[in-house]
């Protein structure tokens, strides 16, 4: 069970959080092409190492967080609010 230090709530069990993977930027809907759009929908870097992922504190404050996690060890070295909203 991961321990995630939510900037609002403090350390909580990982099961309170929903994993959303490494976000990719949404292409401009006006000018996007099928190929670009489907890369956005489906392709993944799927790195083994440090990644910046988006999680949601779903059973807690419901804030969206950016978490730096090592995907081979599950070590977490940083947690911050999405968009860096001040507390």
């Amino acid at each position: 069970m991961l321990l995630i230090d939510c900037p609002y709530c403090g350390p909580r069990n990982g099961s309170e959080f929903a994993w959303q993977g490494v976000p990719s930027p949404r292409p401009d809907p006006a000018s996007t092409t099928p190929l670009e759009w489907r890369r956005y929908l489906y392709e993944e870097d799927n790195l083994a190492g440090w990644v910046e992922e988006r999680w949601k504190h779903r059973s807690g404050c419901r804030a969206y967080l950016i978490i730096e996690r090592h995907t081979a060890t599950n070590e977490i070295r940083a947690v911050r609010l999405l968009g860096g909203t001040p507390l």
């Binding site: 069970m1 990982g14 099961s15 929903a18 994993w19 993977g21 799927n46 083994a48 992922e53 995907t71 081979a72 060890t73 599950n74």
Partner: peptide, 12 residues
Amino acid sequence: PFGSYSTRGSLD
């Protein structure tokens, strides 16, 4: 419930 290359397993 989340992507990982860890094969350590969990108690949950």
